[in-house]
Design a protein around this nucleic acid. Structure first.
Length: 925
RNA sequence: GCGGAUGUGGCGGAAUUGGUAGACGCGCUAGAUUUAGGAUCUAGUGCCGCAAGGCGUGGGGGUUCGAGUCCCUCCAUCCGCACCA
């Protein structure tokens, strides 16, 4: 037997690929393109475990396969290098985050090299590199310089808006804006420069405004909703409070509809589309304005059920609603103030857990927009200030939440549908016909919604309205390690964009990475940088981590371009991304903002496509298989798991032991003793002298001693084995446990594969003999299976194809070049190092990637003789072999003639015989 | 509560369109060979049964000559959202 020296082979070919620039995409090509992309990694300092490279291996396989299929392939890799961990580390140690980041990136690249993962070396970008963030800033400036025109349904330059204001004022304008007022052209022209700027700001797609933000005092910065988990910061787990602050925001809500409807065109999983759909949370209904007794202000509500307007018996406003103070009567003041204060202090979790309704009557009354009836206004935290208008019209007969509230506080319930028992519960079907509803009586809910909206519009009391759950995204962070916001403020406080020729606006050096002593963000420590010669000052915020990752896939097409964010020709050729692979954790963060930016750039003519990712696949997590040892609580002795019974189990505790010391459920007790450095430990083994553990599948984590280091696996078994095994484990999309024990299967396979080529004395066995029909059949079946497997990303089904082929060839003693050479190409996406080695030994002087993927032929894949299973009443009772081109009648005749079938027929004639050509025969008696 | 996904041997999983359920691998059993190895090779291995045979894809029901696959219903697990008006 030959020796498969994977260490030598893998090292040599990794060097070869690096030296030859094997993975550089062709700049000018007539070939069709294929763009395959992994989600941008954040180069963390923590080491990789075997779960991390799963997606990278999959894309590497696809990239190599597409190359062999004649595509010009772009498979880039870069780093999302701005972020909190490096900055926190800098605060603690004073080491510049750029340095930490550089080190981590180098480590990542080295790890990937060891696994045979190679990317286009000319695309290696990092978001913290000024050559890159120059263009991140440029896109921000473009957002600042544009507004969203709802007539044209696209972004347009701010200059167009100014021209419109100068000529028409706000008349005829339909824009995505936070500005509520109207003015004439004359009024516009009479305004001060500052007043004009303030109005324009409310239209910009990147705008500064007051926002209630999630402030994290420990980190000294605001956080996006996505960066918070259970009321704590996602990174670091610090408490977060709500606070009103002036912040930069991006008007993603302008794109809500487009982001929603374009989902239809994408080949993404339903789960992912649903998550985005829910996040956007579009809901259609009406905005209705209620008069308020004794007030000039109206109370505006949003409802999806304007048809239930005659069922309103009370109103509810959120505790934070501005109207509360105005309408609360003297008698109610104390109770309301106490309630509002209490609501503020209730944590998110408490509010969520609360199923019973709480609330207080304000003493104020609203006026029904049609009947003029007085409706009491209550305050309750089941209405949230962040959705809709923070106020609702409550219809207890038609909404269960309102019903619960009315029942608790003894508020009347008016029945407004024929059906439903409102004593028992609310009834919310839109199919029901209305009663007690004046002009709506007899209509179904569907009809009444339209009729009511028409009526409200006629009265000027409301109109059709669409509300989104999604909010504009806050784009300021009071941090150091991010892109500086390219904005300056002049003496009047008017914001100005930094022009392109002054970008990048690089990060200043600071003495410390903490907020400045007078409470400014860290950039405020660089006073020279902040204060400009003309008296204006720079914005001190940096952008969030999302910024750099919102467009990196565009930069990859032309990563070193200095005069444009990417050459339009390159964008035209490469976009969109054909296959995007990454975890599901970016479902509503990165993926939504990346889509938003691409739509925007498309609008302003800077990007040929609006949707960046045609096909998205989410790889499942690889879980750890923890190993646990029983330890007797009284004696502290460890006891083999097979000696522990149900009855005695309670006397033991279970202790995690490192998975590396366990093989097939048996612990290497000596290794364990050495590891804990305690020779005195007692292990009670079974009769065979073995110490058994129990296993449990859970998240891979250092603290559970169940992590497995891919570098160690490569050292023991080789990268090709690891790649093959990770793919063999199961479908890429589903979560599955890692268990190193199984790896011997694929390791053994690669050895046997190697031994098809080499004999006991390392002698070369491959001959130039002509192949047999049977050998060609095996080969072509395997080609077909592998090709189909890769195409539908069922990589786990490819591995058995290789195994079966190797086994068959070995059995037939086939050592023929005509079979083995295509086999080498076939296996090269999965086991690239070994394939390159064998390819070279076969006499080729270029990479196996220059080869063509073998083409399977129909004639070798279909059988001449088909062995039909013959069922009698749906159960297989016999098998008959028939020529493939036999007619149905012939197959039937042969099947019926079989003695086993005759036995079951027992002289009766069959009622029915079904022959499915090429498949099966079923005899019904 | 709402939405999405997933349930197949001791374990990971296969079966693309309704057509031989359990490919392939781990583990296990037996044998061979070698006894320094976590080595290699051969055969067997869903469950019950001596066998004939029966039962089997989370449970129950249905459609069909035929269901892991389609329909209804229930259960379990995981993920996302959560008083969204």
């Amino acid at each position: 037997m030959g020796t498969y020296d994977f260490r030598r082979i893998e090292k040599a070919w990794q060097q070869y690929w690096k030296d030859h620039g094997t993975f550089t995409a062709e700049k000018e090509s007539t070939k069709p393109k294929y763009y395959v992309l992994d989600m941008f990694p954040y180069p963390s300092g923590a080491g990789l475990h075997v779960g991390h490279p799963l997606g990278y291996i999959a894309t590497d396989i696809v990239a190599r396969y597409k190359r062999l299929k004649g595509f010009n392939v772009l498979h880039p890799m870069g780093f999302d290098a701005f972020g909190l961990p490096a900055e926190q580390y800098a605060i603690q140690t004073g080491i510049h985050p750029a340095e930490t980041t550089r080190k981590n990136i180098d480590r990542y690249l080295e790890q990937m090299t060891i696994l045979g993962l190679h990317h286009d070396p000319e695309t290696q970008i990092s978001t913290s590199d000024p050559d890159y963030y120059k263009w991140t800033q440029w896109i921000f400036v473009q957002l600042f310089e544009h507004w969203y025109d709802k007539h044209a349904d696209k972004a347009r330059p701010i200059a167009d808006l100014e021209a419109h204001f100068a000529q028409y004022g706000t008349a005829g304008l339909k824009a995505a804006t936070t500005y509520k007022g109207t003015f004439t052209a004359a009024a516009w022209q009479a305004m001060s420069r500052k007043a004009q700027a303030d109005i324009l700001m409310e239209y910009r797609l990147a705008y500064a405004g007051e926002a209630t933000v999630n402030w994290c005092p420990a980190l000294g910065t605001v956080l996006a909703n996505e960066e918070i988990k259970d009321g704590k910061s996602e990174r670091g787990g610090h408490p977060v409070e709500r606070r009103k602050m002036r912040q930069w925001m991006l008007r993603i809500t302008a794109y809500a509809d487009r982001l929603l409807y374009a989902l239809d065109r994408l080949d993404w999983s339903d789960a992912m589309k649903t998550m985005q759909t829910n996040w956007i949370g579009r809901s259609e209904g009406a905005s209705i304005r209620f008069g308020v007794e004794g007030q000039t202000d109206e109370l505006e509500v949003f409802t999806t059920r304007p048809d239930t307007l005659y069922g309103v018996t009370f109103m509810v406003v959120a505790p934070e609603h501005s109207i509360v103070d105005k309408i609360t009567t003297a008698e109610q003041k104390e109770a309301v103030q106490a309630y509002v204060a209490a609501a503020q202090n209730r944590s998110e979790i408490e509010r969520m857990a609360g199923t019973t309704k709480t609330g207080v009557f304000t003493g104020g009354y609203a006026l029904h927009p049609i009947t003029g009836a007085r409706i009491p206004i209550w305050v309750s935290d089941y209405v949230v200030i962040t959705y809709g208008t923070g106020a609702i019209m409550a219809v207890p007969s038609g909404d269960q939440r309102d019903w619960d509230f009315a029942k608790k506080f003894g508020i009347p319930i008016v029945k407004i549908t024929e059906e439903g028992d409102i004593e028992e519960a609310a009834y919310d079907s839109k199919d029901a016909r209305l009663i007690n509803s004046d002009f709506l009586n007899g209509m179904t809910g569907h009809e009444a919604i339209k009729a009511m909206i028409a009526k409200l519009e006629e009265l000027g009391k409301g109109e059709r309205e669409i509300t989104y759950r999604q909010r504009d995204v806050i784009w300021s962070r009071q941090r150091y390690w991010g892109e500086p916001t390219p904005i300056t403020y002049d003496a009047e406080g008017v914001a100005q964009a930094v022009p392109l020729d002054q970008l990048p606006l690089t990060l200043p050096e600071v003495d410390e990475y903490k907020p400045s002593p007078d409470g400014e963000p860290p950039l405020g420590r660089a006073q020279d940088w902040k204060n400009l010669p003309d008296g204006s000052v720079r914005d001190l915020n940096t952008m969030p981590g999302l910024a750099g990752s919102s467009w990196y896939f565009l930069r990859y097409t032309d990563a070193y371009n200095d005069s444009h964010y990417a050459d339009p020709k390159r964008l035209q050729y490469w976009m969109p991304v054909d296959l995007y692979v990454g975890g599901t954790e970016h479902a509503v963060g990165h993926l939504l903002y990346a889509r938003f930016w691409t739509h925007f750039l498309h609008d302003i003519g800077e990007c040929p496509v609006d949707e960046p990712f045609s096909r998205l696949v989410n790889q499942g997590m690889i879980q750890g298989t923890s190993q646990l040892a029983y330890r007797h609580q009284a004696s502290n002795a460890f006891v083999s798991a097979d000696l522990v019974t149900k009855e005695t189990e309670s006397q033991y505790s279970q202790l995690h032991v490192p998975v590396g010391f366990v093989r097939n459920g048996i612990l290497d007790t000596e290794a364990y003793k050495a590891w804990v450095q305690d020779d005195s430990l007692v292990f009670e083994t079974n009769e065979a002298g073995e110490f058994h553990t129990t296993s449990m599948v859970e998240k891979m984590s250092k603290s559970k001693y169940n992590t497995v280091d891919p570098a160690e696996i490569c050292e023991t078994y080789g990268a090709d084995t690891l790649r093959l095994y990770e793919m063999f484990l199961g479908p890429i999309e589903v979560a599955k446990p890692w268990n190193t024990d199984g790896i011997t299967g694929v390791a053994g396979f690669l050895k046997r594969f190697y031994n098809l080529f080499f004999g006991d004395q390392e002698e070369w066995l491959v001959s130039d003999d002509a192949p047999e029909e049977a050998e060609l059949r095996e080969l072509h079946k395997a080609i077909k299976q592998v090709e189909e497997g890769i195409e539908r990303l069922a990589f786990n089904t490819c591995v058995p194809a290789y195994m079966v082929l190797a086994k068959e060839l070995s059995r037939m003693g086939c050592r023929k070049r005509a079979i083995l050479e295509p086999f080498v190409v076939l296996i090269s996406p999965f086991a690239p190092h070994l394939a390159e080695e064998l390819w070279a030994r076969l006499g080729h002087d270029s990479s196996v990637l220059e080869a063509a993927f073998p083409q399977w032929e129909e004639r070798y894949v279909v059988e001449n003789q088909i062995e039909y299973p013959v069922q009698v009443n749906g159960k297989v009772r016999a098998k008959v072999s028939v020529a493939a081109d036999a007619s149905k009648e012939e197959v039937e005749k042969v099947a019926l003639a079989h003695e086993r079938v005759q036995e079951f027929l027992a002289g009766r004639s069959p009622r029915k015989v079904i022959v499915v050509p090429g498949r099966i025969v079923n005899v019904v008696v």
